[in-house]
Design a protein around this nucleic acid. Sequence first.
DNA 1: TAGGTTTGCTTCAAACTTGAACCAAGTCCG
DNA 2: CGGACTTGGTTCAAGTTTGAAGCAAACCTA
Lengths: 171, 171
Amino acid sequence: MTTRWLTPEEQRAWRAYIAASHLLEDAIDRQLQQDAGMPHLYYSILANLSEAPERRLRMTDLAERTKITRSRLTYAVTRLEKDGAVRREGCPEDRRGSTAVLTDEGTALLERTAPGHVETVRATLFDHLTPEQVGQLEEICAGVARGIQGDGPRTAGDDVPWLRRSSTPCS
Amino acid sequence: MTTRWLTPEEQRAWRAYIAASHLLEDAIDRQLQQDAGMPHLYYSILANLSEAPERRLRMTDLAERTKITRSRLTYAVTRLEKDGAVRREGCPEDRRGSTAVLTDEGTALLERTAPGHVETVRATLFDHLTPEQVGQLEEICAGVARGIQGDGPRTAGDDVPWLRRSSTPCS
DNA sequence: TAGGTTTGCTTCAAACTTGAACCAAGTCCG
DNA sequence: CGGACTTGGTTCAAGTTTGAAGCAAACCTA
């Protein structure tokens, strides 16, 4: 099949997305590294645990929720365990399993650092969005996530005959 | 100041964004690693060079365009140079400077792998977006990027009195 | 119930990223 | 000029990520 290159609109969107996501992640990582001593992903792991019943989650569930690989999670939890923010426990029902538990210390850290984090998310993201755009962003991202995960049920743009407009490598 | 927590809408948007961006980057990295033997960022560096006049750019310019740190770029260009995709040249006007030049081999690699990459960007992102959403995404991202970079001229949402709605750590 | 497969998680080496420290070369005044 | 500061880029160690390989418990299925 001959390549369906990106239209100019798509290119602009793609470039803008790349730029924004880099800038956003960098800013948030920097702030959390400063104030919580860990990168964003690690903070997210703690945040996810804090919302789970009993503040505990099986490793695979946690990987699922955070959208990261199991090996990445293993490394992260090992570090967080060294920090004392998380504790590992074996599963009674499935002896292969391992459960990550947010410790009191981890909870305290989260409570201490959440305001600064939220403030940064606001300053970097939501302060630049109108309420409508917040909704649009959610829909866009939810659709994309659904599309990538299921990879079956497409939502939009199927079978659209795209014209060849340009041939830049698109970043 | 008492923390302005995220509203439920903002939380949903934020979570969806985190998930989508992880999934997207993972998918694209995997494909490019497969087909081009390098992660997305490295491909982007080549793509940026390919669009520059004479296919050459000062290191700092390149870092600027790709939104990454100079040290990250140094490492990346060193690797790409080993691969033969890029060559370094000194600047005549400013002898501190260094210029990255896309080689013919790099150009060929780009031409060879661009179709697959574009296809992946489509499959993971644009196939799930309506044309309006493409425009919305661009506006959102452009605004966010502008906001983070300049950090001065805000575009929307300034001085809005947010109500305290929830206190989850928000990921 | 033994063999084969899957599932849950870890391990390991190689690659990549980070941020601070560093080295020149340019620039600015006094 | 000559020191102080800035700018362009690299280096280094410590931390993180990747993907393939490994290991053991659970799940078949004959």
